[in-house]
Nucleic acid binder design. Structure first.
Lengths: 153, 153
DNA sequence: TATTGTTATACTCTATAACTATA
DNA sequence: TATAGTTATAGAGTATAACAATA
């Protein structure tokens, strides 16, 4: 195969970028932030915060949540129990199919979610050191990369 | 306070960049990759892979590993047991202080680590779609951001 | 019969407490 | 006495299996 400098360079750059993401991941920066956000709104599991963030204005069923979070339905029961206990969500039996329960965000739940996001999305010091131009470029590139991932409320 | 467009823009960009990182984090992309890498080299816990990756050529003590991983020493015992059972590391009593055990990587351990990294550092499809220039820019910016984080072997 | 959700239970990962050996 | 490491045990988080209600 012929030498192809552009391809080789692109591959190396892509790998280097992903290596940095992996380091970010291993640094527990985002992980710790997640636990802080849970503490902020009194949630016991990180799982219940993920569930809270997954609930859109179109109320999902328990099964929808299980699918979105790639976990077992029984665990969703546990997570939604916690959210309901804090008054952040309500279970509503769907009239058209009485097997299904829809998970509806309450006003308190919406406020709690906003507070949790405030903690979660506060950038760490390592990002603050970028110049304005660098920050904008980074945001644009990462937005392109994460376009296919589930949105954040 | 006076209106200061550059600052405001920088803050918004930084937040947007971090929001993307959080989405990447929530997507379980890196998390799943970690489990794949564990399976590749027969490790039971993700923790034991983190430990394997933390071992430098200057063999750390059990306590060094516990400090580096911010976890309890007893858990390090469990992780190193797993690594030793697979022949990836050896415990060596330090001659100058016989309380201390140094964790030495074996040739098998070094090979396993390389295979694990191959899985771990293979960039996901979402990154492959960048152009060569974009990938290079992203790598540079992320390298700057993660400069203060622990390195990856 | 198949699907939604719940309960009861078990497994995995990680921490705490009590202990041994060395300093 | 204090520190390194281990053992035994307990806790948090998540899954599996059996079940009830509805379709």
């Amino acid at each position: 195969m012929a030498y192809h400098p552009a391809m080789r360079s692109k591959d190396a750059s892509t790998r280097e970028a992903w290596r940095c993401v992996t380091r970010l991941f291993l640094s527990d920066e985002a992980h710790d932030r997640f636990h802080e956000a849970c503490a902020e709104i009194g949630l016991p599991h990180p799982g219940s915060l993920r569930a809270l963030l997954s609930i859109s204005s179109d109320p999902p069923s328990m099964r929808d949540l299980a699918d979105a979070m790639h976990c077992d339905a029984s665990y969703i029961t546990c997570l939604v129990d916690a959210l309901e206990g804090l008054g952040y969500v309500e279970r509503r039996v769907m009239p058209t199919d009485r097997r299904v329960k829809q998970v509806q965000l309450t006003a308190e739940g919406d406020a709690a979610r906003r507070r949790a996001l405030e903690v979660l999305l506060a950038p760490p010091d390592s990002l603050e050191q970028l110049t304005a131009t660098e920050a904008r470029t980074l945001a644009e590139l990462l937005a392109k990369v994460t376009a296919s991932y589930p949105p954040l409320p």
